[in-house]
Amino acid sequence: MKNRIMYTAAIAAVMAVLALACKKSATTETTPLERQDLQATSAAAATCTAPGWASQNGGTTGGGSATATVVTTYAALKSAITSSSVKVIQVNGTITIPSGGRISFQDQSDKTIFGSAGAKLVSADQTKDNSGIIYIKRCTNIIIRNLIFEGPGAYDTDGWDNATLDACKNVWVDHCEFRDGVDGNFDIKNTSNYITVSYTKFTYLKAPKAGGSGGSDDHRFSDLIGSSDGATADRGTLSITFARCWWASGCVARMPRVRFGKVHIVNSLFNSTASKSCVQAGFEANLLIEANVFESVKNPIDLMDNNSTAVQSKNNLFTSVTGTSAGNGVTAFTPPYSITTLGNSSVKSTVTASTGAGATLSGNTCSSF
């Protein structure tokens, strides 16, 4: 009898413990929003090492492992970007930039903006004053990753690019896609320095709009480095690496067009059949064009007015191209960094892979170099 009483008491104790555990589990289960925040925190914890020029001048780490602020609306995105206290931003879903709502991101440092899978920032305005998605000025140590920037299509009204870097230092743009910008997709200017653009795709999927005041009926000009020949303050700056990028369908020119800068274009793919010129060597440009693939394009390397400092073509693969593809016979700068350089036969498969160029990641994860 005594043993039976003790056994019954033990069973009762076990049941009580199990009931308490179940109750605790039920009361501490995370809600969908909490799970989202936990995922954001985990994603933001990735601290990656920037390759190329962004590794110089102390390196580029963005907001580091700070907890992410999750945004799903334009108002929340603008508030987070313009707040210097927010260090990591996670963009979820598609956010539409209203007409005239281009976001001004100025005078900040140590910040990461990244997208979850499929995140997209969209502008539908083609006017001179109200177009564009983001303008980044006088910012330092910034990472932008895994975002699609989609404009309304090219229209030569002297409007705005999808994104612009102006007088920024140590910026790493990684695994993004820039498409259908009004004036261009992504420009870098005004003494910006120590910039790396990696695993990023540039494309135009929408037909250009003709009849713009600027005079070009087809302004699908993707990327401009340096604003003018007269911007002589750019001398000694505009040190930029484009690594494992993809200038894809619809790009006509400026892939990129460079003035002044020491620009390393490495392991990238150019295959826009709409092309008229790919890499354009402008005034005092110092270009190292290394181990890239040019496929079915016109004028892979355009020497323009022959006033560049150096244009060196090294180990590139040219397939079914027409026009000019040689450098100017002058050896370019030697990069002060080490970067894993693929053989040109591996470039196309790497860049076009499921986790290759474009917003192909699941969030703020590190790229492979």
Rank of each mutant, 00 (worst) to 15 (best):
T30N: 14
T31L: 12
T31Y: 14
P32H: 01
P32W: 06
L33Y: 05
E34T: 00
Q36I: 00
Q36Y: 01
Q36R: 12
Q36T: 01
D37S: 04
D37F: 06
Q39I: 01
A40M: 07
A40P: 01
A40Q: 07
A40C: 07
T41L: 08
T41Y: 10
A43Y: 14
A43K: 12
A44C: 11
A44Y: 07
A45P: 06
A45D: 13
A45G: 15
A45N: 15
T47S: 14
T47F: 12
W53I: 01
S55Q: 12
N57C: 05
G58V: 00
G59N: 06
G59T: 07
T60F: 12
T60R: 08
T61M: 13
T61V: 13
G62N: 10
G63D: 11
G64H: 01
G64I: 08
S65N: 11
A66F: 04
T67Q: 10
T67V: 07
T67P: 10
V70C: 03
V70D: 00
V70G: 00
V71K: 02
T73C: 00
Y74F: 15
L77A: 05
K78D: 09
K78W: 04
S79A: 15
S79K: 15
I81E: 05
I81Y: 01
I81L: 15
T82N: 04
T82A: 03
S83R: 04
S83Y: 12
S84F: 01
V86E: 05
V86A: 10
K87V: 00
V88L: 12
N92V: 10
G93P: 04
T94C: 06
T94V: 06
I95L: 11
I95Q: 12
T96I: 09
T96A: 08
I97V: 14
P98S: 05
P98I: 02
S99E: 11
G101V: 11
G101S: 12
G101H: 09
R102V: 13
I103Q: 04
S104K: 13
Q106I: 00
D107Q: 15
Q108L: 14
S109Y: 10
S109G: 09
D110V: 00
K111W: 06
F114S: 03
G115A: 11
G115T: 03
S116K: 09
A117G: 08
G118A: 04
A119Q: 05
A119L: 07
K120E: 09
K120G: 02
L121G: 04
V122E: 14
V122N: 10
V122P: 01
A124W: 00
T127N: 07
K128G: 02
D129N: 13
D129T: 13
S131M: 11
G132H: 04
I134P: 02
I134W: 03
I136E: 04
R138H: 09
C139F: 12
T140F: 11
T140D: 14
I144H: 02
I144A: 03
L147E: 06
L147I: 13
F149S: 14
F149T: 06
